[in-house]
Simulated scan of single mutants.
Amino acid sequence: MMSGLEAALTGASSPSWSERVRAGRGLAAFADDPEAAEPLLGLLLDVEDTAVTRQTAEALARVGTMAALRLIARAVAEADDHQADWLQTGVHDALVGPHGVLDVATVCGQLARDPDEAVRRGAAEVSVWADGARC
């Protein structure tokens, strides 16, 4: 029997958008696991379906850990304008949803000191989104 991580990793490369959405939601819980990082980044930057991007970003923002938000920041730095819009929508959904999330802006502030320049740049953008969601 496959573990939750194994099943989500398998789903991340599925041709089915709905399987990739499930994988993004499932893998978000493993954002701290290095094995999940690249598949999650791939789901955040999914070129076939914006639902995958949006749902994975929302799930990671809800997790709210440094590792989860670092992945979102990396994706923002690599995303084209269209992908960035859906990443922003996913983060926004997490921030204004019924359960809200921890202070994303605080974690992004910590990521502003990340050694990776792309992460710093992406975190600055996510921080602006988080500030806008509070209004």
Rank of each mutant, 00 (worst) to 15 (best):
A130S: 14
T65S: 15
A57P: 10
V101G: 05
E38F: 04
R62C: 05
W129Q: 02
D33G: 10
Q88W: 11
E58V: 03
A31N: 08
W129N: 06
S13M: 10
V91C: 12
V76K: 03
P39K: 06
A133F: 00
P15Y: 00
R62V: 09
M66Q: 14
G11Y: 01
D93I: 00
T10F: 05
D81V: 08
T89K: 10
A124S: 11
E78C: 06
D80W: 02
D32M: 00
L43F: 00
V63D: 03
D93Q: 13
S13V: 12
D114I: 02
G109M: 10
L27G: 02
G122R: 09
P34T: 13
A124H: 01
E78T: 04
H99V: 05
H92D: 03
D33T: 11
L44G: 05
D81E: 15
D80Y: 00
E125C: 00
D81N: 13
L40A: 09
P98A: 08
A29S: 14
A105R: 15
V52T: 10
A7G: 08
R62P: 00
D116C: 06
P115C: 01
V96W: 00
A94R: 14
A37Q: 15
T89L: 08
E78W: 12
M1D: 14
P98M: 10
A8W: 11
V101N: 04
T50W: 15
L95A: 12
P98V: 03
E117V: 07
A59I: 01
Q88F: 00
D33Q: 01
V47K: 12
W17K: 04
A7I: 00
D85R: 13
T53M: 00
G42H: 11
R62I: 07
M2S: 14
L41G: 04
H82D: 14
G42M: 00
A124E: 13
V96N: 11
A123T: 10
S16M: 06
S14M: 11
G90W: 08
W17A: 15
E48L: 13
A79D: 08
P98S: 08
L44M: 09
G24S: 01
R70N: 10
G42Q: 12
L5T: 09
G64M: 09
A8G: 11
E78H: 12
M1W: 03
S3E: 10
L40V: 12
L43V: 05
A51W: 09
A133M: 08
T53W: 03
R70W: 05
E58R: 15
E125M: 03
G90R: 03
V21K: 01
R25E: 13
R22V: 07
L44D: 02
T50P: 00
A124D: 14
L95N: 06
V91D: 11
S18C: 01
A124N: 11
D114K: 04
R113Y: 06
I72K: 07
L95S: 07
R121C: 00
G26H: 08
S13E: 05
L5K: 10
A112T: 03
V63F: 09
A123Y: 07
D80T: 07
G100Q: 15
R113D: 10
L102P: 01
M66L: 15
R25I: 03
E19Y: 02
S18M: 04
A123N: 09
E35T: 15
R70D: 06
